[in-house]
Amino acid sequence: MRAIWKGAVSFGLVNVPVKLYSATENHDVQFRQVHREDGGRIRYRRVCSIDGEEVAYDDIAKGYETEDGEMVVLTDDDLAELPTSSSREIAVDKFVPTEQIDPMLFDKSYYLEPDKAAVKPYVLLREALSQADRVALVTVSLRTRMTVAVLRVHDDVITLQTLLWPDELRQADFGVLSEAADEEVKPAEQAMAQMLVESLAGDYDPEEYEDDYAAAVQELVQTKLEGGEVKAAPEPEEAGGEVVDLLAALQQSVARAKKGRGEDVPDEVAEAGDAGEVEEEAPAKKAAAKKSPAKKTATSKAPAKKTAAKKSTAKKSTAKKSPAKKSASKKAS
C-alpha cells in the first residue's frame, strides 16, 4: 500500500508520527464506452454550452450554481481567500463513548501506521482506546479541508474514520409512515415476528456472501477472450507524421498573422495558409477527411477553426469507419 498522508496524532503531550493509508478499495465492475464497430474508446471534449466551442483547460474556472440556476464564477483569487488548512496534526479533542457516534455519520476509513520510532506511544494509544471502549474524536486536515473524524481500533490497528457533517444526513420524511403512526400491532403478531427473528438468528460471516454480478462479468469476459472475441487496438502511427502536421499548422498560423498585419507572405507560407482557408470554407470536405491526422492536428492548433470542427463532428455518422484511421483521430485529439 502507498501512504496518502503523513502527520502525527497528538493527545495531551504525546505525539505519534503516523502514515495514513486508505483502508478500502472499490471492486465495482468498471466499463468503458467504446465504438461498437472497432472497440475504440469514446473521448469527450470540454465544450461551452453557450457558444458550442471547445474550451482550453486553462480557460476553465470553478462555478457555483444557485438554486434558481444562476452561475457564480469563482476565480483563483476568490478561492485563495477561503479558509483552508495544511496542518499535519490529528488532534484528539476528546474521548467519547462509542455508542454516541451514529454509524450513519461514518464516511471513509483509513489505517494509521506508526513510524518505527513511535511504536510504543502508538501501542499505548491503541490499548487505551480498546480498554476504555471509547473512540477518540479528532480534527484532521485532508485535501486542505478540515474535517471531523474518530480514531478506533480494528484488528490491532488504529483506524481513522472521517465523519459526515450533521447537515449531510438527509431526513427520512415519509408521509406514509406518519399516517401509519396510529397502527396498532397485536401481541400475537409481535410474538410471531420475534419468533421469526430468533429462528433466523446467527453470526455474520463475510465469506458467506459473494458479489455474484462481478463474478459473472469476469466469467463472461474470460469466455470472450478464450473465444477470440477481442477488438485489437489499432497500431499507432509513427510520430514522423505529426512533425509534418505541426509544421503545416505553424505555416498556416504565420500566413494568417502576416495577412492580418498587411505584410508580405512568402510563397510557401502563403500556399499553406491558403490551404487552411480552403479547408475552413468547405466543411463538407473537412467532414469527409475527419479521419486524417494531418488536418485534425491543424484544426486543433487553429482556434478559428473550432466551428468548422464542430460541424464535421455532426457528420461523423456519414464518414466511413476505419480502425486505422480511428486510431489516428484519437491520437491527434
Rank of each mutant, 00 (worst) to 15 (best):
I4G: 00
G7F: 08
A8T: 08
T24E: 14
D28R: 11
V29L: 09
Q33G: 07
Q33K: 00
D38T: 06
D38R: 02
D51N: 09
E54H: 06
V55H: 07
A56N: 10
A56E: 12
Y57E: 14
D59C: 02
A61R: 13
K62V: 02
G63E: 00
Y64S: 00
E67S: 12
V72T: 10
V73I: 15
T75K: 03
L79K: 04
L79W: 04
E81H: 09
R88A: 09
A91K: 14
D93K: 01
T98H: 02
Q100C: 03
Q100D: 15
I101Y: 05
I101L: 12
M104P: 04
L105K: 04
L112E: 00
K120T: 12
Y122P: 06
S130T: 14
A132M: 09
R134C: 04
L137M: 12
V138F: 00
R143F: 03
V150W: 00
V150G: 03
L151E: 01
D155C: 04
D156S: 12
V157D: 03
I158R: 04
T159F: 01
T162P: 10
P166Q: 04
P166M: 05
E168Q: 15
E168H: 01
D173L: 11
L177K: 05
E179A: 15
E184A: 12
A191S: 10
M195T: 13
G202Q: 01
D203I: 05
D205L: 06
A215C: 05
E219R: 03
Q222M: 11
K224S: 12
P236D: 02
E237F: 14
E237P: 14
A239Q: 10
E242M: 15
A249F: 07
A249C: 03
D267W: 05
E271C: 04
E271R: 15
G273T: 02
D274W: 09
V278L: 14
A282M: 13
P283M: 07
K286D: 13
A287F: 05
A288W: 10
A289H: 07
K290W: 15
K291N: 13
K291G: 14
T297G: 13
S300E: 15
S300T: 11
P303Q: 00
A309C: 03
K310G: 13
A314R: 08
A314T: 02
K315M: 14
T318Y: 11
P323C: 05
P323Y: 02
K326C: 05
